[in-house]
Amino acid sequence: MSQSTALAGQSPATRTGFADMLSADDFKSAFRNHPAGVAVITADIGAGPVGLTATSVISVSANPPLVVFSLSSASSSTPTVKLAETVVIHLLGAEQIGLARNFATSGIDRFADTSIWSRLISGEPYLPSANAWLRGRIVNQMSAGDSTVVAVQVLQVDLPGDSGRNAKESRPLVYHNRTWHSLSEDSMVK
Score class of each variant (00 low, 15 high):
I108A: 07
G98V: 09
R101L: 07
A104Y: 00
I97R: 11
S115C: 02
I138M: 07
N140K: 07
R101A: 12
S143N: 13
S115Y: 06
S147V: 08
S129R: 14
T105N: 01
T114P: 01
L134R: 08
S115P: 06
T148K: 09
G107C: 02
V149N: 03
T114W: 00
A104V: 00
D146S: 13
L134M: 15
D113I: 02
G123D: 08
S122W: 00
A132R: 06
D109M: 12
S143A: 14
S147K: 13
A130D: 04
S143T: 14
R110C: 01
A132M: 09
L127E: 03
S122T: 01
Q96A: 02
S143H: 11
S147H: 15
Y126W: 15
G145P: 05
P128Y: 01
S129M: 10
N140M: 06
M142H: 11
L99F: 12
V139W: 05
T114S: 14
E95W: 05
E95V: 09
R101Q: 12
T114L: 07
D109E: 10
A144L: 12
N131E: 13
A130Y: 03
S129F: 10
D109V: 02
I138F: 09
S122Q: 03
S143F: 04
S147P: 06
R137A: 13
G136V: 06
S118D: 13
I121N: 13
L99Y: 07
M142C: 11
A104S: 00
M142W: 03
V139Y: 04
Q141D: 04
P125C: 09
R135E: 15
L99M: 11
S147F: 14
A144F: 06
S122I: 00
P128M: 00
N140S: 15
R110K: 13
D109W: 12
I116N: 04
M142I: 11
N140R: 13
V149C: 04
T105Q: 04
I108N: 08
Q141F: 06
L120V: 03
G107W: 00
L120G: 01
E95S: 14
N140D: 15
G107K: 00
T105G: 04
R101C: 04
G98F: 03
S122R: 02
S115R: 05
L99C: 12
S115K: 12
S118W: 07
A100C: 07
L99D: 09
I108W: 10
G145M: 03
D109I: 03
G123L: 05
